[in-house]
Design a protein around this nucleic acid. Sequence first.
DNA 1: CTGTTAGCGCGTTCAC
DNA 2: GTGAACGCGCTAACAG
Lengths: 336, 336
Amino acid sequence: MSTIEDVAKLAGLSRTTVSRVINNHPYVSEDKRKLVIEAMNQLGYVPNSSARSLRSQKTDVIALFVPRIMNPFFSQLVESMEMAAAEKGYQLIICQTRYSPEKELNYMNLLKTKQVDGVILASIQNEWKVLEPFLDYGPIVLCNEFDEQANVPSVMLDQAQGGYIATKHLLEQGHRRIAYCQGGTRSNVASHREIGFRRALLEYGIEFEERYAFRDAFSSEDGRRVFHQMMKLSAPPTAVFTGSDEVAAGIVSEAIKCGYSVPEQLAVVGFDNQAITELMEPTITTVHQPVEKMAHKALEVMVEKIRSRKYRRREVYEFPIELIVRESTVSNRLAK
Amino acid sequence: MSTIEDVAKLAGLSRTTVSRVINNHPYVSEDKRKLVIEAMNQLGYVPNSSARSLRSQKTDVIALFVPRIMNPFFSQLVESMEMAAAEKGYQLIICQTRYSPEKELNYMNLLKTKQVDGVILASIQNEWKVLEPFLDYGPIVLCNEFDEQANVPSVMLDQAQGGYIATKHLLEQGHRRIAYCQGGTRSNVASHREIGFRRALLEYGIEFEERYAFRDAFSSEDGRRVFHQMMKLSAPPTAVFTGSDEVAAGIVSEAIKCGYSVPEQLAVVGFDNQAITELMEPTITTVHQPVEKMAHKALEVMVEKIRSRKYRRREVYEFPIELIVRESTVSNRLAK
DNA sequence: CTGTTAGCGCGTTCAC
DNA sequence: GTGAACGCGCTAACAG
């Protein structure tokens, strides 16, 4: 384990000069630079990052908070974020809060202990006032999240638009009894989607009916359950808006299993544009979210905030969202 | 940003005593301990981790190498590994090699620069002799991987058994022309599965036919392609073993789209037991891998190696694998 | 252009 | 039981 001192000795120079070479400082003669590089190679020297961090007060590490990774939406977010980080020379520490405020709070200490230069929250489990004090220790950037109270940058998708275009699509197909089926995360992703959903209904002069609303659907199993709950209603819905492709897939799968035809008897629209939407029979209409763009932007903003050290200001970056029409909402039986 | 010095001053004690309290050292009187804790709380003091790392020569961070996260198998691995790490007080840095030897090599410097205490490889892109020199800087543990040359711990699943039981199941269903369809990763996960596949065939006195082998199938799209390739053969296979549920789903989806019935005209078995296997119609028979157990064990072994500093020895931990029979291999038309 | 020197914040002998 | 002092490896003044 060689140190900068060893390199200096071998090259017959001082530590300073070696340090200058490492950090591409100007004012080092070409000969000495060669000497240093030679010595470094010979020793297989690499600077110790703890020492560097201690000295420079930065770690080049960013923490990314997600509720869990297995959820395909977050998988994609983590994947994109890691690539963006690598591109900028940062490492990513993954923190799964598992929807637990305690775990979230605990991971927040990474900022306090200076193990990371900043925290990107792709999930918020605590009240903002609980999180805010951590701003004393470094920047926090919200990604796919938003909080009225939080005066920090927020990179997000236009969820209201997502709810709107998906619902409008169903309305255009002639549906009038449309169910709303969403995972009721504490986040306002869900509430924004509902705003869009309601807006579309309003435009068509349709009243939002609470009995058509299911706000506890996260998994495909939930989808199956909701399907049965819906069909038991008097005047059951003819279409359903869902907050995730998994839920949509669960509904479609259960519907078909029970002999219903999709979309003829029940149209279904998902959310996320996951691989599964193209594998199901019928394929599933869904809402595509530019996760990669969002991740890149969030990381870019974070890096800028780390550099400038001015991060206590609300800045909102919003990306548009897009409907992808497939078979689960448009009958193609005739075409076949 | 308060330091240990500040705490000491406020408590009217020396840095040493504060340090002792932090590290639960004995020989600190109860009164002083109270004093220190009081002062720490008052200042909101938290030890600086860079300084600690520099001093103690450890970071409590482990790097996990995966080719990419979006692949559900690796999502699950990362998820489980992160939880196991959190449990043991470690952080996890995610490194996506994206199947690139250069990227892998680059990430390996995390070990050299002492940014991490150890590296868990859930994917190997370089020859072992390229990676081996890094052992001078810390432990490397293989997870879901194996290398003949590597004298390091290896935590894996019995892939040969996986190939065997899946194939045997197809044979028991009466199939005799069975295709082999697998992603030809550089890893020997694939080759072990093939060994099991061949062994099962052998037991039934059936010869392995190269024309039934497709070794370039990774995605559902590949599955669709392979389906057509298979069906164009003279005497096409009546069953297919695949190396991933995505590929299996692609095959099933395409088969049904083309009017084939599964499993009557083509039986399909997947690998990984992903969510999709229960959502497809028909549901997909697959091989369950105890990823969580493997991840926990790998992390446990890593922590032990970090502690003991003796890690240049081959140790193999192997977990059994299990077949889950669903509709894509067993006709239930009669039952319906 | 180059070297000397002083910490960054912490843990740990070694004396008392 | 407690404190003074050293050094982990590095960077950044400050001199020269």
